[in-house]
Design a protein around this nucleic acid. Structure first.
Lengths: 302, 302
DNA sequence: AGTGTAGATGAATCCAATTCATCCAGCGAC
DNA sequence: GTCGCTGGATGAATTGGATTCATCTACACT
């Protein structure tokens, strides 16, 4: 007769092993840390050996714990996945995709009809956020990460890299303002700034772009502030650009849809290097095939 | 965030799906059928669709239930297996083997030291019984099935086939009784009978053997009853033969150990065809490799 | 030394799981 | 057709394993 340990104990163990913290596991499951401690202890008694090393800090898995953890985690992931699939309206599967807000809004969403046409059985749930969601915690199935280099702690592949140009609406240029023939001409228009929260000193802002442009157009003044309008997030700056309120330094990837359609135009050819877009997921994801399909599709509609 | 349904509901569902009976599932889990009904209902509400068809009888899985069941069952099997492995004394694994009683006692048990020498890390638990255990219910990891043809509903492979001869103890022949030179001479000794419970009209009993022997030795009378001692089970008949109480028609496989050691001898060369021994297990058994090793070992020590 | 953090221990509490009582539907025997 | 049996459904009452609370321990950092 098959002997299953208490399933609640397996659940507590798995969360604690994933988080390597009873406190965090408790928060995730909505119980007190003591409850986690009790359940893990029950499982350790059943196994006849410790599953965690508590002392010294930090919490770590024992060899036995290391053997148990991936099996239980994968089992639970598979359970959640099949229950989700069974619950789905037409037996379709879901991929939860987290992506930076601007990319989700400006790149992903306009292309979703193309995904739907190609993969009607794989429904996407898009989580647009500039927060970094925890894939190991199951917050999403895959993340589109925007970084200078390849993320190292998960399975990742680069999809494409972007560059940054001054971008504006054609309507702005046809309002009778000065023609733009050199970089300094841009200063006659409102410059739209947005914050870079990644702490990168080389982030492609107006000050960076103008510093580089000064080497080919010495007429650009060395003033400290170079913006007329400022936003906290890139997505809002792009909205203002599209509304003809000024010129912003934008990612050619993020606004590629608008550039192609003519809704936005490059105001100048000088480009700053940007970052890479990576599709990232946990190893051995149960929907690995769907994730691969998504990554390939992203490349094909770039 | 990964969404797991209540694990107790999954457990109740899996048992009911495996058994296709709420009553039996309840018995297995040690609860009332109502508890199963409640838990399955909770899961059906989470999935948003029925998982069982209750009406008309018998209970059956819906399409959704069919999709869910193997995933949950395999997950639980894997959980139980890895917890058992982690709990093992020296990281050894266990194979629970069910076998007909006579075979377990006379063939398997005398050879166990050879298994232990070759596979010290795979511990065997032998369940000798003439009942047919339910492998899908996890009653055992593998079964040695004794049948005329290959079992069809599980993964099976034939290990060997046996034949049936008259067998006796050398002590019986040296007691000064008549020499056995022809089949009819056997009738001067006590004939030991045992029941065949498989309903096979051609089962290798004394009446069958004597009917065949009559074609080469017409001196054998056509009486109805041919036995002096009768047992319900083969194993007890073999015990009596080993104790010198008479001659029985025995499987050459089952008593091969005793024939080799000289503890028992063939009383006559005329052989009746027997049956096949098959190693049987559920598909995708988590210890498939160990089962394969066991089957191969059986062949090698035949 | 003092403070904060995180896991451990055990009694008390609690709530999801389970039982109990009753009902419903079908099937087979008569 | 009636009756009895079987097995799942429903909902209120009960219960036992899960959880909390109070307290302790060990450690890391200032």
């Amino acid at each position: 007769m098959r002997k299953l340990p208490p399933l609640g104990s397996l659940r507590a163990f798995e969360a604690a092993a994933r988080r390597l913290s009873f406190r965090e596991a408790a928060a995730e499951l909505g119980v007190t840390p003591t409850a986690i401690s009790h359940q893990v202890r029950i499982l350790e008694e059943i196994c006849g050996r410790p599953l965690f090393r508590r002392r010294p800090r930090p919490l770590a898995l024992t060899d036995a714990g290391e053997r148990l953890f991936p099996v239980i985690r994968n089992g639970f992931d598979t359970f959640a996945s099949v229950v989700t699939a069974v619950s789905a309206k037409t037996g379709r599967t879901t991929l939860r995709v987290t992506s930076p807000n601007a990319f989700a809004s400006r790149w992903l969403v306009p292309r979703l009809p193309r995904w739907r046409k190609l993969y009607p059985q794989i429904r996407l749930e898009i989580i647009g956020t500039d927060d970094v969601l925890n894939l190991r915690a199951g917050d999403a199935d895959l993340a589109i990460r925007y970084a200078r280099t390849m993320p190292a702690d998960l399975v990742a592949r680069e999809i494409f890299r972007d560059s940054f140009f001054p971008v504006c609406s054609p309507a702005l240029l046809s309002e009778g303002g000065p023609a733009i023939t050199r970089a300094a001409d841009l200063l006659h228009y409102p410059l739209i700034h947005y914050d870079w929260l990644n702490g990168d000193r080389e982030a492609p802002s107006w000050s960076r772009w103008l510093a580089v442009a000064r080497s080919v157009d010495p007429g650009i003044p060395t003033a400290t502030e170079h913006w007329d309008l400022s936003f906290r997030e890139e997505i809002h700056a792009i909205d203002a650009v599209a509304a003809g309120q000024g010129i912003a330094i934008c990612s050619d990837v993020v606004v590629s849809h608008e550039i192609e359609s003519g809704a936005l135009v490059k105001a100048h050819d000088l480009a700053l290097p940007g970052y890479g877009f990576y599709v990232v997921h946990v190893p051995d994801h149960p929907r690995r095939a769907s994730i691969e399909a998504f990554a390939a599709w992203m490349r094909s509609v770039a």
